[in-house]
């Protein structure tokens, strides 16, 4: 059994080496220090055509989201996979799943641009504090020219916990 442990240890050492090698080969290597989705959003977006001086994405709390959902002054975007939107979402929210963006974006782009033109800020959310979808979607939208995005980082979990109204498909 001791020799088995030694061999497992050797495998682990090989895995460590391979893991960091594979990471270096990625187009966007994962940094060594973990950052929450909200922290990632606070970093300035990089890339061609990105205005580094664009207003930062603002993290909002549940009170602002409740007000936005009640008054319909914002366009609320659910970045979770569409199945979760169908099961339940913040009233008035549209589904724009980050992982199905290629499919959904062409169908919703005009709606997003009309909302922004009408002075309705885009407010994004996903499952909870640790879900990456809303943050990543905000980054994608920012790269497509949308600014002044609002991020409800506590997301659907906080909305449900607060006992707020739920709309289904």
């Amino acid at each position: 059994m001791l020799s088995d442990f030694k061999r497992v240890l050797v495998l682990l050492v090989i895995a460590v080496g391979l893991a960091f090698l594979i990471n270096q080969l990625r187009s966007e290597p994962l940094g060594m220090v973990y950052t929450t989705p909200a922290q990632q959003m606070k970093a300035s977006p990089k890339g061609p055509g990105i205005d580094a001086n664009a207003p930062p994405i603002t993290v909002v709390g549940i009170d602002q989201v409740i007000q936005a959902a009640t008054s319909r002054t914002h366009l609320i975007i659910d970045a979770r996979p569409d199945l979760f939107w169908e099961i339940g979402h913040i009233p008035g929210a549209i589904s724009l799943p980050r992982k199905q963006l290629a499919e959904y974006y062409p169908k919703t782009e005009s709606l997003l641009r009309e909302a922004v033109a009408a002075g309705r800020p885009l407010l994004l959310y996903c499952a909870d504090l640790h879900c990456p979808d809303a943050g990543a979607l905000a980054k994608e939208l920012n790269q497509r020219g949308f600014n002044g995005l609002l991020l409800f980082e506590a997301g659907w979990a906080a909305w449900e916990e607060a006992g707020q109204a739920v709309e289904t498909k």
Partner: peptide
Amino acid sequence: PRALINPVALILPTFEVLLAAV
């Protein structure tokens, strides 16, 4: 701890694939 999250996210899947192969 925060410092270990990303290293584990990188190493664990590689270890799983390696175990599968071995």
